[in-house]
């Protein structure tokens, strides 16, 4: 189905249905008070997936190393809290975003000289190097054991972290996700976002219209890294620990699977994909405790073959066919 002729002029306007994910998020808070720990993890995962969507879905940068920025954010907050006694949560998140953003800009400057399979490999290698660095820097990072038992001051000086029921953490994460979403939404609908889509669609043409392609990609990579860093910092704050698991391949691949399931380059793909992934994981693990990943793999094959735009793409296709 073709977009309406004035779709470009209207697409940045908020639609009524865009309230649904946020209303659902708030409803969860009241309806499932015993699952707020799980809900908080889900919100952090969505923010992380959203950060990847900016580079993967919109700019077409295929990377397996995005967990590196999540790790930088997570360890920044952890090190600040444990080594320097900086336990204020909001400024901790800002520091996490800044640190990951700077690492993103520097690594993007080097890594984005490559593309395709080479980029995939070097981003993966970068993540492994960082994992080893975190392991070796025991004095600062806690090495393999990480940094358990971190504590943080009250959010805005008003809301204490609720280690038992995660109430504050949940609402705090929902607020940070909303802020991150507004940033990504503003970016992708801007001229900058449009040019990123242009780069994804046709690199040769973008050069031929005089766009500073590499510069744009590095900036997008840096912003995306900063958001991933905020997600990592949030993870450390809400769980109260950080260890090498934040850098695992499982996290890096998992967030990509989430986008493939939900639909990359579609803003809400991260939301739908994260929920679908976790529900699928839960159901499959219940049905086949020893082989649930096989089911996940088969689902991914089916999505790749029959629903390239993920669940949102499938929905759009069905709506268009009506």
């Amino acid at each position: 189905m073709s977009p309406a002729p004035d779709a470009l002029q209207r697409r940045h306007r908020f639609q009524w249905w865009e309230l649904l994910p946020w209303a659902t998020g708030l409803a969860m808070f009241f309806a499932f008070p015993n699952y707020l720990s799980f809900g908080t993890q889900l919100l952090v995962t969505i923010l992380f997936a959203l950060s990847l969507d900016l580079v993967l879905g919109y700019a077409g940068i295929v990377t397996l190393g995005h967990a590196a920025f999540f790790c930088v954010g997570a360890y920044t907050v952890g090190i600040l809290a444990q080594q320097l006694g900086w336990n204020e949560p909001l400024s901790g998140l800002v520091a996490a975003g800044l640190a990951a953003g700077i690492v993103g800009l520097i690594s993007g400057f080097v890594l984005l000289r490559t593309h395709g399979l080479t980029l995939l490999m070097v981003t993966l290698c970068t993540m492994t190097l960082l994992e080893q660095a975190a392991n070796m820097g025991h004095a600062w990072t806690g090495g393999f054991d990480g940094m358990p038992g971190l504590s943080f001051t009250m959010i805005l000086g008003l809301f204490p972290f609720d280690v038992l029921y995660f109430k504050s953490q949940y609402l705090y994460s929902l607020s940070v996700l909303a802020l991150g979403f507004v940033v990504v939404r503003t970016l992708v609908y801007s001229s900058f976002g449009q040019s990123l889509t242009g780069i994804r669609e046709n690199l040769l043409r973008m050069h031929a219209v005089g766009a500073p392609v590499r510069g744009r990609l590095i900036v997008a990579y840096g912003i995306s890294a900063a958001l991933a860093g905020v997600a990592g910092g949030l993870f450390t704050q809400v769980t109260g620990y950080v260890n090498l698991a934040v850098l695992g391949l499982e996290r890096a691949a998992g967030v990509m699977i989430i986008l493939i399931l939900g639909g990359h380059g579609r803003l809400y793909g991260a939301f739908v994909g994260a929920v679908a992934y976790l529900v699928l994981e839960h159901l499959l693990a219940k049905a086949y405790p020893t082989a649930w990943q096989l089911g996940l793999g088969l689902t991914l094959v089916a999505v790749a073959l029959f629903a390239r735009g993920g669940l949102i793409g499938l929905f759009e296709k069905l709506r268009g066919a009506r």
């Binding site: 779709a7 503003t186 609908y189 976002g193 889509t197 242009g198 500073p212």
Partner: peptide
């Protein structure tokens, strides 16, 4: 779309291709 294709070129020419805060629309 056709409109987006042409807008990308015009945005670059007018030097607003990298603008982040205002919607392209």
């Amino acid at each position: 779309t056709v409109q987006e294709n042409v807008c990308i070129a015009v945005s670059e020419r007018l030097g607003v291709g990298g603008a982040m805060l205002r919607s392209a629309g």
